[in-house]
């Protein structure tokens, strides 16, 4: 795989992260289900997953950048596995609503494991690390838009989490935006 294709693939992975963050936001706003502490940690690790691709787009693909994303994906898989195990007992209804039969933390586990497998697969393609061809302008714009989209969604999550938790510890089972409740 050439360097240009690898960078396009990294931009696509940023759009995938943006899709996950948008879906989480959509569930939060439309279903009025506030994310629990472990759910927030999974969102945080999805955002952390994006740092490797941002570096790949800016400095070119390097194994160390993929390794950063692997660390984030493994940490995310551990956190989502914990939440799956917390609700594994028969009769436990799980936390929040389900999407296509799976709760969000189960989807998160599937997403993090898929990221680990895809990162391992892309690391097999050695040519991307040798190639030094410049990136075409059209693809540069596609990648830049992906970077700013992910940064913007992460910034929105900062605001949303501040509203939800306020300046204290986040509630185990949040039902109101703490900062808005205090202001009212």
């Amino acid at each position: 795989m050439t360097r240009t294709r690898a960078i396009t693939l990294n931009a696509l992975s940023l759009y995938a992260v943006a899709l996950v963050l948008t879906a989480a936001f959509a569930a939060q706003l439309t279903l009025h289900e506030l994310p629990c502490p472990l759910c927030l940690l999974q969102r945080i690790l999805f955002a952390t997953l994006a740092i490797g691709p941002i570096l790949n787009i800016r400095f070119g693909p390097r194994p160390s950048h993929y390794a950063m994303s692997l660390f984030a994906a493994v940490a995310g898989a551990v956190v989502s596995t914990r939440q799956v195990l917390l609700h594994i007992m028969p009769g436990d209804a799980g936390y929040g609503s389900a999407l296509l039969g799976y709760h969000y933390y189960t989807w998160a586990l599937i997403g993090f494991v898929a990221a680990i497998v895809l990162l391992a697969a892309i690391l097999l393609l050695d040519r991307q690390f040798d190639d030094t061809a410049p990136q075409p302008a059209s693809r540069r714009a596609f990648a830049q838009a992906a970077v700013w989209l992910v940064i913007g969604l992460t910034a929105l999550n900062v605001v949303s989490t501040l509203l939800e938790c306020g300046f204290g510890a986040c509630a185990d089972n949040p039902i109101v935006y703490e900062l808005l409740r205090r202001a009212a």
Binding site: P37, L40, L41, R43, I44, A47, T154, N157, V158, T161, L162, C165, G166, F167, G168, A169, C170
Partner: peptide, 8 residues
């Protein structure tokens, strides 16, 4: 608060 700080 720690989650807001982490996201920031």
């Amino acid at each position: 608060m720690e989650f807001t700080a982490l996201l920031l």
